[in-house]
Design a protein around this nucleic acid. Structure first.
Lengths: 210, 210
DNA sequence: GATAAATTCTAACTTGCGTTAGAATATCGA
DNA sequence: TCGATATTCTAACGCAAGTTAGAATTTATC
């Protein structure tokens, strides 16, 4: 799953770099730090020096694991989409009504956030190659479609109100992306309260039935 | 309102630049272009050359209107918050229940978007001075509080469900911020459909009452 | 139409940062 | 303990982009 995601598309061809099993751990550290910093400050503002410093390294050391900054970011996007897809797979496997799936999905994203840190879901990636951009784009669109399906299923089984799935998914995604930006600055915030707020806002609705 | 917003706080002190009434028009053009580009690519990736090119100028010409890139961005943030505050003022003046105000607010934000273009509401501003950051932060917090008040009023007058206003406001803001990023790439999307999707998602709720 | 002011341009300077080369250190098996 | 490999460091290079100085051009005023 980790590498088999994209079928031969744009995989790093020659990689004389860091294959040893031990160093993979450090690669993960770098990736996590990079994703976190890129997520908060953006690609251009995230310097190699800062990313390296986050795990007590010098900037040059990063080039032992990634050929360049762009490749590092690209790997970060792939990693994020892998996680997102893993969540989708788990939710789909769980079955249930459309609303059930949507509910489980929201919870799963929040839980994934605390475990794996912030991600680069749906974010800006204009700094990548055209080819890399297309790869991320098509993958993202495909994931979004699977999310839309939850809504369609819900509309079919009567658990979700009539709506335009494409638009609603984007609105939900907006909420979730935004979470990764402001929650770090909100101390004392539990995932339970957050989930409750999301369900109240998006599922049951803010408007009280009169 | 345009300049009197911040009471003497961090206003540009000496400004030998562009005071002539005629040139203010061009200043607005620059500001709008800068906000748009910064909003999509981030501050660091938004080059002065690109901003200038957006209105058929050379990068150096921008320094006739703004002392530097940071000041340009700061002005952009101020402009965005001014617009946001103007919307709030209008909504508050309209009266009605908490739900009514919330509804009108959502519509107003969408309409403002098409008229004035994308904004820098609540966005990243880590590239500003510490002082500038604090100014934007306190202003933003104050605006968010006024939004929370709509929810509190609604909870009091029975039009809005029980919730944590602070969290819900952030969720709504996330939806709205995210709008400015993906709607430009979605052709054939009317504001009406968008508003309907938002109201379905956030107000009446996606879950269908069983 | 001429002078002055306002606006924009060209060209060069400067700095920060991605990147590279090669030396230095750490890790590990025999 | 020693040699080999893996990992990280120091130092320097090159380029992109913010910035500046001053010339060139437009616009306004009389």
């Amino acid at each position: 799953m980790s590498k088999g995601g994209d079928p031969g598309l744009l995989t790093d061809e020659v990689r004389p770099l860091a294959q040893s099993q031990k160093s993979m751990k450090k690669r993960e550290e770098i990736l996590r730090a990079a994703i976190k910093i890129i997520n908060t400050k953006g690609f251009a503002a995230a310097t190699m020096t800062e990313i390296a410093a986050a795990i007590d390294l010098r900037d040059a050391a990063l080039y032992y694991y990634f050929p360049n900054k762009q490749a590092l970011a690209y790997a970060g996007h792939q990693r994020s989409l892998e996680r997102f897809e893993a969540i989708l797979i788990a939710v789909e496997a769980g079955g249930g009504t459309g609303l059930c799936k949507l509910r489980r999905f929201l919870r799963a994203v929040l839980e994934d956030g605390v475990v794996n840190g912030p991600q680069l879901y749906f974010g800006d990636h204009s700094y990548l190659d055209t080819a890399q951009q297309r790869a991320i784009d098509t993958w993202t669109v495909r994931l979004a479609k699977r999310l839309e399906r939850f809504l369609e299923e819900g509309m079919a089984d009567g658990t979700i109100a009539t709506c335009e799935p494409r638009l609603v998914v984007q609105l939900l995604v907006g909420m979730l992306i935004w979470l990764t930006k402001w929650t770090p600055t909100t101390p004392g915030l539990t995932n339970e309260r957050l989930l409750e707020a999301i369900e109240t806002t998006a599922l049951s609705g803010l408007a009280k039935p009169s």
